[in-house]
Write a protein that binds this DNA or RNA. Structure first.
Length: 553
RNA sequence: GAGCCGGUAGCUCAGUAGGUAGAGCAGCGGACUUUUAAUCCGCGGGUCGAGGGUUCGAUUCCCUCCCGGCUCACCA
């Protein structure tokens, strides 16, 4: 076996807090001398190396017998001067390709690397299942092939260790495609035992907190996040195919705008100023329209300081797209075509099944005004939906207490209560009241409403779009109304944004805008019942407070 | 924020009508050169989520709290 002779133990040397609890006092000099640290290194460097190679006090904060056993093996490697965290392993073959191409490559020397997930020792012969991202291959390690010394080393390999191996591609007597190992290297020693391979990681809390373990032990989870990535890819393909430019705008906002939502507040020390994490990129993207960019989109995180549940995470991914010289209709067409395209690319078809419910995403989607929807799904009459008093009566009868009592809020609240859950098949709801749409252009012919739409699928609002208001004086009046609502206690109402108004005052072309909740779209396309299942690292409360308080700074 | 359910070994789980707990896998020691969740022999391993109360005695009963899941309320 060819083991690299140099103990390249660089990992960990960049740690900002060198050696916790006075481990430097003990002086690891003797051990370091034997780790094969070659002479000729600068002494300061050697000192640093030897410090870093001390297995953190020979124990972990939550130690157990299995961890101890692994750390003992780790020390053994160090005593032998053999790296347990070796460097790059070039020239490897994805294992699935070896399995698929076995006929062509049989008998050839191949290199593989991955995580050991099963071990079957058999005296002087051992088998291991090695997994890389492409799949699994069996390693066959015989003392007679690798030599006694290397075989002894192999017997210190634990489940979860990451190894690289070189050998001949063969089939065993039982017909299992295998690498008959000639040499191997330990690339990363796992000092914690992995979750049981067969049961996987079941505990939901642990799956979210330790997603890496979830990914490792539950292949369907890995697959889901591959799908999520493909969805994002497909969206980008679709939009750039239509001439859109992807841009990035600030997340730190001096004024939080673009959506009715409560922002997170943060603080810039050097500037001594309050900043908000954005609730939407809208107002910056529209500045780009003023600047002459005609089709722009951004995919990024928005942050809303609101509740957490199966459909809401404090940070979530949104797509926003703006098209100059378009309007709400332009964006509705864009939406339905994009969603259908993404479904075809990722799921392979336009019909999806969500939690047992079949949903057909094929355009064109149903279009209905908010008032029509109230008539169709909630049994209101065409007269009722026009009159605030009638709506108030309906709300009272249904036990709905509107937060704001004007016509627009009443209509919208009744819609949300009575209609939303019914909109399972894709539907564009149009003609939103002006009171709740401070950034949208008014409908031609009816100033109570705006040229706005929201796409609904599965009873969820998956997006929001409109003909963008580009009259700066009108926009200023709308902001003033929002400010009034803030004074009335609506914490989600917009703040005045003079900088944005100034941009509009230079002239923004008429435009259509669209926002899509990417996480919900991913939920739909992957049949996931909780937003946490489609976020790699959903927000979690800290599990327990650290004993040593981080009171240092 | 409210209601319901849950937290037991590294993982997956069982259990204790109150007498400080078990299994499978994993681990440790041993045997084994073609296994497939290898097999066989032997052995360790737990502040039963945290704190308090009742009790001679609490993992179990009671209270409070923490974390999570689901449902509801608000939001995308």
């Amino acid at each position: 076996m060819q083991q690299d002779s140099q103990g390249r133990q660089t990992p960990g040397t960049r740690r900002s807090e060198p050696g916790k609890t006075g481990s430097r006092a003990g002086g690891p000099s003797s051990a370091a001398g034997e780790t094969g640290t070659p002479g000729g290194r600068v002494s300061a460097r050697a000192q640093e190396l030897s410090l870093s190679t001390q297995p953190a006090g020979l124990s972990l904060p939550d130690d157990n017998d299995q961890v101890q056993a692994r750390i003992t093996k780790l020390q053994r490697y160090q005593e032998l001067g053999i790296p347990a965290y070796d460097g790059a392993y070039a020239g490897r073959d994805p294992v699935a390709r070896l399995v698929e191409g076995f006929e062509q490559r049989q008998g050839q020397t191949v290199r593989v690397a991955g995580r050991v997930r099963a071990l079957r020792g058999h005296g002087q012969l051992s088998f291991a299942d090695l997994y890389d991202e492409s799949g699994k291959i069996q390693l066959l390690i015989g003392a007679d092939r690798v030599g006694e010394a290397a075989y002894a080393l192999w017997q210190m390999v634990d489940l979860g260790d990451i190894v690289g191996a070189e050998g001949v591609l063969v089939k065993t007597r039982r017909g299992e495609i295998s690498v008959e190992v000639q040499s191997f290297r330990l690339l990363s020693k796992a000092v914690r035992p992995l979750p049981d391979k067969w049961a996987g990681l079941r505990d939901v809390e642990s799956r979210y907190r330790y997603r890496y373990l979830d990914l490792l032990t539950n292949p369907e989870v890995h697959h889901l996040f591959v799908l999520r990535s493909r969805i994002l890819d497909a969206i980008r393909q679709f939009l750039s195919g239509r001439g859109y430019l992807e841009v990035e705008t600030p997340i730190l906002h001096p004024v939080a705008g673009g959506a009715n939502a409560r922002p997170f507040v943060t603080y810039h020390n050097a500037l001594d100023m309050r900043l908000y994490l954005r609730v939407a990129p809208e107002l910056y993207l529209k500045r780009l329209l003023v600047g002459g960019m005609e089709k722009v989109f951004e995919i990024g995180k928005d942050f809303r300081n609101e509740g957490i549940d199966t459909r809401h995470n404090p940070e979530f991914t949104a797509l926003e797209a703006y098209e100059a010289y378009g309007d709400a209709r332009t964006m509705m067409e864009l939406t339905e075509e994009m969603v259908a395209y993404v479904a075809r690319q990722v799921v392979g078809r336009e019909e999806i099944v969500y939690q047992g419910q079949e949903i057909r995403l094929t355009p064109p989607w149903k279009r209905i005004t908010m008032r029509e929807a109230l008539c169709e799904y909630a049994g209101l009459t065409a007269e009722q939906v026009e009159q605030p008093e009638a709506l108030r009566a309906v709300a009272a009868a249904k036990g709905i207490k509107p937060r704001v009592n004007d016509y627009g809020h009443l209509l919208a609240e009744l819609f949300e209560e009575l209609v939303e859950p019914n909109l399972v098949q894709p539907t564009f709801v149009t003609e939103y009241p002006v009171e709740i749409s401070p950034l949208a252009k008014r409908s031609e012919g009816d100033p109570r409403f705006t040229d706005r739409f929201e796409p609904y699928v599965n009873g969820w609002e998956i997006g929001n779009g409109f003909s963008e208001l580009n009259d700066p004086l009108e926009q200023r009046r709308r902001f003033e109304q929002q400010l009034a609502a803030r004074v009335e206690g609506d914490e989600e109402a917009h703040m005045m944004d003079e900088d944005f108004l100034r941009a509009l005052e230079y002239g923004m072309p008429p435009a259509g805008g669209l926002g899509i909740g990417i996480d919900r779209l991913v939920m739909l396309l992957t049949d996931s019942s909780s937003i946490r299942d489609v976020l790699l690292f959903p927000h979690m409360r800290p599990k327990e407070e650290k004993e040593e308080s981080d009171a240092k700074e």
